[in-house]
Design a protein around this nucleic acid. Structure first.
Lengths: 351, 351
DNA sequence: ACACGGTTTGCAATCGTTTGCAGTGCCCGT
DNA sequence: ACGGGCACTGCAAACGATTGCAAACCGTGT
């Protein structure tokens, strides 16, 4: 900090201010401001002149001064539970594209640990000033939190969860899951385990919807879902491994597994193999996501458009910031991609 | 925008300003400012009083006003080529932890496409105002760009590449790669292909260092590195697949592959299998990274501490922002983890 | 009683924009 | 020749902090 306290541009001069531009163009700061932002009531010749001077001085408006005066930051925030996980990294990537295209800066907030999450939710006020809008990824707000967010008045969009009141992008988790389980049923499986996460109290969340799909498919087929075949894998590879290990030890072992994420599915595959068993000969496994490596691992999975979801949600947020008043809820499609980790139940032949 | 133009806190009041606190505490704004920031020359009793009032008003200093007056943003930026790729997502995740712990906001800049990259590098001035410091991930600045960055005076730290003049965190790519290739040599392989990326003109970059390690190991073993066994996989799964497909078609096909990343290695594995061949019976493959799924795929790999690198680099940046004047260069260790994608050359037995 | 040094405090300028309001010209109709 | 519009432009007050400088205060030593 002692070395220098103001930035310089490439030529070593202190950055130009709007005043410099005004002086250079022989007009007032007000006119420069209006000309640069494309407001009406500026003569075309004046505007061009200002533009030229601004360019020659390499002028960039100071975003902080601008925010202070105008109240807009031209930045959005994203709340992401686990940056390191595939799904989230893809969503961020997609959303970033949308924001970058619109010239918005992206602030990343981690809300993974319980402590971070609660600080984020409770100290909403801090963010309000820093960003114009907020994109929540799978934040799973409970009703109280939701209320707080609502009357904080922040412009919010959600991806992963659906809330009334602000735009959201989700996938049809329930039907996606049901199709995955139906696929296993068609292959003759009857004891179909579920690796997922403990569903919270909220409707429309990923774990509860995917569980519902599993439940639907089984009951529709006249099969009683077994509680002992339902185990949490915490959405990690490692957790999937542990969950599968556990499932291999239950009395009447499942012959097939539906995992709520590809990462858990992959952990499960590994666990099966670690036990000297084979996928799919001994256990069929279906995941959910369309992870980039699912193909490499020949994993049967329910693909969802992850990057596109992030991008779409980003666009919704931008639209809301631009004044849109509709509250769109887009449900992205899923698609079952059958590969080699799912096969007919041993000894059965299916049509 | 028409709905509301100022944020409200949870109770619906406009956010408190420093003036409100000053009024509440019966002191001047100046004193509040000093008290809140822990500056000396504030009576302990006054400070406590101010603190209490600030808390009761739920006061948060406006970051933009603060930046404008003081010149610091309390935010850092990260330039990341491909957010969606594993390595980068891990580095971001690690760095974010460091920044969050220090109370810094994180701005994410994508510099993946050539256009974005060049805009980023050339419009440095924009960033200067937005962030206090910048963490560059594998940006591979060329000397000109480096100069520009240097005399822009920005506080910069790099991870992945090493530059003189600012702190960096790298891994010993060259020796890591050499050890990987030596491992293959020990298994009896002589025709060892390289899947990587075209090295740029810069020393100390990931592709050129890993290539150098491959080259070293071969020449040390008295083997002439074959140019036709060197092919780019662009650091993607897909690219690795294509590269391997290509390598399977060359005249004297390699019996082993060193891939510069696990993702490319996985793509390569898939390609081998797609050709009806076996890993490791027909081709041994070694990757580089320590990808979370390497274990699941039984991939032999050179592990590097990815998250830790990001975190460390973040810490270096924070130290620099705090006034540290040393310019640390930390080289993180790598470790070969042998698994089942590498095996003795068929028909050979090794010790 | 007073000068003095050190600690606390307050005043007011400053950071770089935006924006409501008040001009300033200029053209046109009468 | 003159008043009214219109299309532009400029003035100056915000926005909400930080900070150099000066003033106020307090206890001491003489």
């Amino acid at each position: 900090m002692s070395i220098r306290n103001h930035a310089t541009n490439r030529s070593g001069n202190p950055p130009a201010t709007i005043e410099d531009v005004a002086a250079g163009a022989g007009v007032s700061m007000a006119t420069v401001s209006r000309a640069l932002r494309g407001l009406p009531n500026v003569a075309e010749s004046t505007r061009n002149n200002v533009l030229a001077v601004a360019k020659s001085l390499n002028y960039r408006p100071d975003p902080h001064a601008s925010r202070l005066a105008a109240g807009r930051t031209h930045a959005v925030g994203m709340a992401v539970p686990w940056l390191g996980r595939w799904y989230f990294s893809q969503v961020v990537s997609g959303a970033r594209d949308a924001f970058a295209a619109a010239g918005y800066d992206l602030l990343l907030f981690g809300v993974g640990s319980g402590e971070e999450r609660s600080r984020f939710v409770h100290e909403w006020g801090v963010l309000d000033k820093r960003v114009d809008g907020l994109l929540l990824v799978d934040l799973r707000l409970d009703p109280d939190e939701l209320d707080a967010v609502r009357n904080a008045g922040t412009t919010v969009t959600s991806v992963g969860d659906r809330y009334d009141g602000f735009p959201s992008v989700t996938v049809d988790n329930r039907s996606g899951a049901r199709i995955a389980v139906q696929h296993l049923l068609n292959l003759g499986h009857r004891n179909i385990g579920l690796i997922g996460d403990v569903p919270g109290p909220l409707p429309f969340s990923v774990p509860s919807d995917r569980r519902a799909g599993w439940f639907d498919a089984l009951t529709e087929a006249g099969i009683e879902p077994r509680a002992d075949l339902e185990v949490s894998g915490r959405f990690t590879v490692e957790g999937g491994h542990r969950a599968m290990t556990h499932l291999l030890a239950v009395r009447q072992r499942p012959t097939a597994i539906f995992a709520m994420s590809d990462e858990m599915a992959m952990g499960a595959i590994k666990a099966v193999r670690d036990h000297g068993l084979s996928v799919p000969d001994d256990v069929s496994i279906v995941g959910f996501d369309g992870h980039e490596l699912a193909e490499v691992m020949d994993l049967t999975t329910v693909e969802q458009p992850v990057v596109a979801s992030g991008k779409r949600a980003g666009e919704f947020l931008l639209q809301a910031l631009a004044g849109a008043t509709e509250v769109p809820h887009e449900v992205m499609p899923t698609e079952l991609v059958a590969r080699r980790t799912s096969a007919p139940l041993r000894g059965k032949v299916t049509g």
